[in-house]
């Protein structure tokens, strides 16, 4: 199936059904991401945004529907194979190896690389100077914003084509928040496509080419970023009060 633009989509989730134990959480969710774009998913708490991310990353099994990455069916592939194809994922919580040092976290991010990844680590230190200050520091001693940067840097170690970011701004101070969004835009500018789950919908949609609204495990709405921002209902439900 082709993406709206007519070319093959980078990521294409089509009618995905998934869940935990006996219960389905996602009841047929479809999402596409094209090369180089930022796509944001918003939706109420517990609607299955994180579950969708985990399903794409291979942590949760696809029960029906399919996930394609660069045209290849990756539904049912183990996480380690998905990562190897250039689709890296930053979970919402517990997204760093807390007892490892900063450098060791980055080395783990490069686990699948066969080449010399030291240059890549230095690139990351360039991108996130905070991390470069004490690479030997244990990750659990970092501040919330630094942890988030480490988590993103870890996921970038494999030079992914697509980055899944689950609420990268959760729990950050406003100053930190701007910084994280700035970095995300910067990374995107280097050609990395992003699928973003965000509660700070205004900022996220502002830099996204498209956005999806998820509710109750189903697609509710899909539109370009600016259109969603202009949509009065969306404003009322997800953008107000901030």
């Amino acid at each position: 199936m082709d993406s709206p633009g007519g070319i093959l989509a980078l990521l294409e989730a089509d009618g995905v059904v998934a869940g935990y134990g006996e219960t389905d959480i996602l009841h047929g969710v479809s999402v596409t991401v094209d090369d180089g774009e930022i796509v944001t998913i918003i939706g109420p708490n517990g609607c299955g945004k994180s579950t969708l991310m985990k399903t794409i990353a291979g942590l949760v099994k696809v029960r029906s529907g399919r996930v394609r990455f660069r045209g290849e069916d990756i539904s049912g592939a183990p996480p380690e194979r998905v990562v190897g194809k250039g689709l890296c994922y930053v979970p919402q919580a517990a997204n760093i190896f807390a007892s490892l040092s900063i450098r060791e976290n980055l080395e783990m991010g490069a686990f699948l690389r066969k080449d010399d990844y030291r240059g890549r680590i230095n690139d990351m230190f360039g991108l996130f100077p905070d991390l470069a200050q004490a690479p030997g520091r244990k990750a659990h001693t970092l501040s919330g914003g630094q942890r988030q940067m480490l988590a993103i840097a870890r996921a970038l170690m494999l030079d992914p084509a697509l980055l899944l970011l689950d609420e990268p701004s959760a729990g950050l101070s406003p100053a930190m928040l701007d910084m994280v969004f700035e970095r995300i835009a910067g990374i995107n500018a280097t050609g990395v496509a992003m699928l973003l789950v965000e509660h700070n919908a205004r900022e996220a949609l502002g830099m996204s080419s498209r956005g999806y609204v998820l509710a109750g495990g189903e697609n509710r709405l899909e539109d370009t970023g600016p259109e969603l921002l202009a949509n009065p209902e969306i404003s009322r439900l997800y953008l107000g009060g901030r």
């Binding site: 990353a57 291979g58 942590l59 183990p78 996480p79 380690e80 998905v82 990562v83 190897g84 890296c88 994922y89 979970p91 517990a94 997204n95 760093i96 190896f97 807390a98 007892s99 490892l100 060791e104 080395e107 783990m108 991010g109 686990f111 699948l112 870890r154 494999l158």
Partner: peptide, 19 residues
């Protein structure tokens, strides 16, 4: 290091690509 990472956070180890 991968062993320590896996002991620390098995799910993250999986999505990081650790075998």
């Amino acid at each position: 290091k991968a062993m320590r990472a896996t002991a620390d956070n098995p799910d993250l180890a999986l999505v990081t690509g650790i075998n």
